[in-house]
C-alpha cells in the first residue's frame, strides 16, 4: 500500500512535467491575458500547476486536461484581479519605467511584451471579451469548452465573441480607443 503511494507520487510528478511541457505556454499566456504583468502571470502559472498536482487524483482522465488547466488559470487570475492587493496597487502610468536597466532574459521578455502593439490593443478590450477571444482564437478551445471553463453559457460565449470581434476589429482598423 505504502509502495503504491510512493509510485503514485512519482508518476504524478512525471504527469506534472508532461503537462507543463504540453500546456505551460498556454497557461502563462492566458494568465498574462488577464493580469497584463509577466511576473504575476508566472506566479499564477506556478499556482495553477501546483494546484493541479495536488488535485491530480480526482481529475486525471476526465475531459480535456488543457481545458481543465485553462479553467483553473482563469479562476486564479480573476481571484488575483479581485484581490485587495491588486486593486490597491498604485498603477504606473508608464510600465516601461519598471523595467530594470540591467538586461536579463526576463527583462527582455518584459520589455518586449510591454512594447508589443498588438498586446496593447488587446488590453483595451473589456476582460469579458478579451478572455473569450484569446481562448477561442489563440488557445483554439471550442465554444462549449470555453463555456465550461468560464462557467458561462455557450450563448454568452457566442455573444461575447461577436461583440469582442467587433470591438477588436474597430481598434485594429481605426486605432480607436474604447
Amino acid at each position: 500500500m505504502e509502495e503504491d503511494k510512493h509510485a503514485s507520487s512519482e508518476a504524478d510528478v512525471r504527469f506534472l512535467e508532461e503537462w507543463m511541457n504540453a500546456f505551460g505556454a498556454d497557461v502563462i499566456h492566458l494568465a498574462y491575458t488577464y493580469v497584463n504583468n509577466y511576473h504575476l502571470a508566472q506566479d499564477i502559472a506556478q499556482d495553477v500547476f501546483l494546484r493541479a498536482f495536488k488535485n491530480m487524483d480526482q481529475y486525471r482522465g476526465e475531459g480535456s486536461v488543457k481545458t481543465w488547466l485553462l479553467a483553473i488559470t482563469a479562476n486564479r487570475a480573476k481571484d488575483h484581479l479581485r484581490s485587495w492587493a491588486f486593486r490597491h496597487e498604485l498603477q504606473d502610468p508608464d510600465p516601461l519605467e519598471n523595467v530594470s536597466s540591467v538586461e536579463t532574459p526576463e527583462t527582455q521578455v518584459v520589455e518586449r511584451l510591454v512594447r508589443d502593439e498588438l498586446w496593447r490593443t488587446v488590453f483595451q478590450l473589456p476582460l469579458k471579451y478579451r478572455e473569450v477571444l484569446v481562448l477561442y482564437y489563440r488557445q483554439e478551445l471550442s465554444q462549449r469548452d470555453i463555456a465550461q471553463a468560464l462557467g458561462i453559457t455557450e450563448e454568452s460565449v457566442r455573444t461575447r465573441l461577436h461583440r469582442g470581434r467587433q470591438q477588436l476589429r474597430k481598434l485594429l482598423e481605426g486605432g480607436d480607443t474604447l
Binding site: 499566456h29 511584451l113 498588438l118 498586446w119 488587446v122
Partner: peptide, 10 residues
C-alpha cells in the same frame, strides 16, 4: 491577428 500575439515564455 490574434495568432500573432507574441509568446509569453514559460
Amino acid at each position: 491577428k490574434l495568432s500573432q500575439l507574441s509568446q509569453v515564455p514559460f
